[in-house]
């Protein structure tokens, strides 16, 4: 092989690579937007992390309430990520959104150690200016950032690829089977070996900013504490109380907001939990029914706006 032939080959191959990469990237992007209903005109946006994903059934909720919901919920997203996700969502869905359902847990202000993960969750939306500007500042390695700018498939990882594929094949079920191991959990709590609740100032500020942002956009929020297995709520009751108080103060900023606390809703039904923070398939059904019932009742108050 001559040098000329070699470099021609490399050049042609790179073109082929870029074309294939862009096509696959576009398909995956379509899939992930579809999975999170980011392009559909919905009535309500559910914003949150894994509890909102697993504890509510979109199909059942829509059937019961007769409204359309978008679930923009990803594992382990912090208050900061949620604010970006909210801005991202609003940048594409300006029209008829009536309100936002914001997931809360006792860990809402505990965000140390989650930030690494959240970049990976946002990379797939890099074509959107809101997300791109955010990531450009937040990405620690410029090399990592530009690799993802150039190659669109490199924006996905195993989890986001999973979302994209499920979006393409239209699989919307989020079911977990099994029951939480309370004995093991009790042991962990006894050994002081569990995820502690903290109140990080940055997170609290971001949460406050989110509430202001919603108010400014004239959107009402329904802030929902999702159910937690009861043993865990007894482990740090003081801290849970102070988190709840802080949330209450901030939510009050907008009188149209509502705060719902389901933390101890299932305190006597451990069998509805998959693990200490998430419901299993039975719990999902139960909780969706309870939540939709509430939603139908207060729908009128939402519509007044």
């Amino acid at each position: 092989m001559t040098a000329k032939r070699f470099f021609n080959g490399i050049f042609l191959f790179l073109i082929l690579l870029v074309v294939l990469d862009r096509i696959s990237g576009a398909v995956l992007e379509y899939g992930i937007y579809k999975h999170f209903d980011l392009h559909s005109n919905v009535d309500y946006l559910v914003l949150g992390s894994s509890p909102a994903t697993l504890d509510l059934s979109k199909a059942l909720l829509e059937k019961r309430t007769g409204k359309k919901f978008a679930f923009y919920t990803q594992l382990g997203v912090t208050t900061e990520d949620r604010l970006i996700m909210l801005k991202h969502f609003l940048s594409i869905n300006k029209s008829k959104l009536k309100g936002v359902i914001y997931e809360l847990t006792p860990h809402i202000f505990t965000c140390k150690g989650l930030s690494e993960n959240s970049n990976q969750l946002l990379f797939p939306y890099m074509n959107d200016k809101v997300i791109r500007d955010y990531l450009k500042i937040k990405c620690q390695s410029k090399l990592e950032y530009y690799e993802r700018v150039i190659f669109s498939t490199s924006r996905f990882n195993e989890m986001t690829l999973n979302f994209a594929v499920r979006g393409i094949i239209n699989d919307r079920t989020n079911l977990k089977f099994g029951i939480v191991d309370t004995i093991g959990l009790q042991k962990e709590i006894k050994a002081n070996n569990f995820w502690k609740i903290t109140m990080d100032t940055d997170c609290i500020n971001t949460f406050r900013n989110t509430v202001y942002f919603l108010k400014q956009r004239q959107l009402n929020g329904t802030f929902v504490f999702f159910p937690v297995v009861h043993i865990l709520t007894t482990a740090e009751p003081e801290k849970i109380k102070s988190v709840e108080q802080r949330v209450q103060e901030i939510v009050k900023i907008n009188s149209g907001n509502q705060l719902l606390n389901y933390t101890i809703l299932f305190k006597d039904s451990t069998n509805l939990f998959f693990d200490h923070l998430h419901l299993n398939v039975d719990g999902q059904k139960e909780f969706t029914l309870i939540f939709s019932k509430y939603f139908i009742q207060v729908k009128s108050s939402f519509n007044q706006k």
Partner: peptide, 12 residues
Amino acid sequence: ASLIICIFLFGK
């Protein structure tokens, strides 16, 4: 090219 794309997707 597909091998490279797979590395992008899974090689994190």
